[in-house]
Every structure is written in structure tokens, then in C-alpha cells.
Design a protein around this nucleic acid. Structure first.
Lengths: 135, 135
DNA sequence: CTTGACTCTCCCCTTGAGGGGAGACTTTAG
DNA sequence: CTAAAGTCTCCCCTCAAGGGGAGAGTCAAG
């Protein structure tokens, strides 16, 4: 019934190191330890591992995931908190996307402008006229 | 004429640490060293610093900037290389933006779906039904 | 009983662009 | 001349999610 870390790692398709790390940061802790100190996991460990991965996949940090699991362990339904986190992450993504789009457009613009410039007329005092240093 | 690192940092509006770091990675090296080993910079140092910042601002790493400056120091016009780097960076941004947009849309979708779910009907075996762990 | 496979903890390493601080010199102002 | 300020190198630290390996203990099969 209780599996050791190697079996869990294999069943989860990950490394022993990762499982140990998840224990250390508190997102996937063993049910108990054997007399020799071996981590022993129940069957729900695999499912919990999958949750952690799924939560990571939607952009949550392990610290946040730990909070969610802590709520869960206290018997509360963490859904509200999860929705809040996800909404916040989505807002951050919006902002980040805006930044990246702005930067990308600027780069494309620089590329276009560079095509109209003669490299031989590059100001020797500047490193490269393609990059504007008007700041 | 020759300024020491503190003056350059102040004129550039940055820290002495940063200037030293730029020396170490080879994007802004002093013209010479004083007898006591102090870094001595010429007047073009400020301009070069601004170029480094501008290049960073368009997403180039210091390693790439060093390449550009190396070309420049060999007397070549690095414009072609710069255009190539910028094009590559823009392509990377496109890919990254796609990823982020996909993730954001997924998050928004999760949020909408969560609004239709009853937290009290959260499967006790799952941590939270908002995050799907179908993987 | 022994050997090979697991497992444990502990420590350092990774990326990028620096920041903080120690301890030793050097320069500058009064 | 002295004290303060500036500069030098060297070393560790940051963040995230682990990876690599050492050295020691443990467990299973032959």
C-alpha cells in the first residue's frame, strides 16, 4: 500500500529529486516515514502530484500551491482562493503580454527602419545606428 | 579628461557596481588603469554606456551586446548582425507571446467555468475542481 | 552473507544582472 | 597630517525549480 519514493516517482513519470523537493517545499509530503526514515506515500500521492503539476501548468508557483493545499488540509474549499490567484495571474499575463507586444513591435519597426539605412553611413561615433540611444 | 568610476556612474545615473560588472563582462571597459589600479574612462564611455542600456532595452543580453561591440572594435559595422539579432529576438517574442496568450485565455476560461461550479460540490478527493488535472 | 539497488541528508551548481559587504589601499579636503 | 571618501578585489546572495554527487545507512534477492 505505502510506496517508497522511487515507485512514486516512476508512477508519476518524474524524478526522485523532484518528489523530494516537493516534500521540502511542502506541496507533497509523505504520509509517514518508515523506521529507517524512508518516505512512505499513500495512493493519493499520485493524484496530488498531478494536481501540483496541473497548478504549475497554469502558472502558479509552488508557494501558492502550498497555500492552496494548506487551505484544503484545513478542510476549507480553496476554490475561491484559486480563482483569485488565477485571476491575478491572468492580469499579470495581460500586462506582460502588453509589454512584450510593445517591444516586439518596436523591434519590427527597427528592422524595417534599418533596411532604409546605409550601413556605410553609420556614424563612427555611435556603435550602431540601428539601435537608438535617445534615452 | 579621464574620469574614475564614481563619476561615470553618477553621470550615467547608475551604480558603481553596475559599471564594474559591465567591465567584467566586457561591454564597457576602461581605457586604462591608473597607477593605483583605478579604472579610468574617456568621454565616450558615457555614450557607450547609453548604447548598452538601449541594447538591453530592446531585449539583447550583455553577451550579445559584447559581440556587437567586438565587431565594432574590429572596425566592422555591426548593423547586419544587430538586425539579425533583433529579428531573432522578435521571433522569440512572437513565440513567447503566443504561449502567454494561450495560457491567459485558458486562465480566463477557467475563471468563467469556476463561476458555474458550486464550491460545495467540490470532489473531496480532488484538491480543487477549478484546476483540471486531466493530464 | 553479501552485493547491488534504494534511500537518506547535505552541499554545491545552474541563469542574468547585478547588490551587499569585508578588508585593504589610495586619494582628496581641511 | 589626518580623517573621510573613493576605489580595489574577492566572496556570498538573490530567484525557481530542481540536478549532480558524496558519503552513509537500508533493504531485497541469491
Amino acid at each position: 500500500m505505502a510506496m517508497k519514493i522511487g515507485e512514486l516517482a516512476e508512477r508519476a513519470g518524474t524524478s526522485v529529486k523532484t518528489i523530494r523537493y516537493y516534500d521540502r517545499v511542502g506541496v507533497l509530503q509523505p504520509e509517514e516515514r518508515s523506521e529507517a526514515g524512508y518516505r512512505l506515500y499513500g495512493d493519493d500521492a499520485l493524484e496530488r502530484y498531478r494536481f501540483v503539476r496541473a497548478a504549475q501548468a497554469v502558472g502558479l508557483h509552488l508557494g501558492e500551491i502550498r497555500q492552496i493545499l494548506a487551505l484544503r488540509n484545513r478542510g476549507e474549499t480553496p476554490c475561491g482562493y484559486v480563482v483569485e490567484l488565477i485571476g491575478r495571474r491572468a492580469d499579470e499575463l495581460d500586462a506582460r503580454i502588453d509589454e512584450l507586444v510593445t517591444l516586439r513591435d518596436e523591434l519590427r519597426h527597427l528592422t524595417k527602419r534599418a533596411a532604409t539605412l546605409d550601413p556605410r553611413r553609420c556614424d563612427p561615433k555611435l556603435v550602431c545606428h540601428v539601435i537608438r540611444q535617445d534615452a
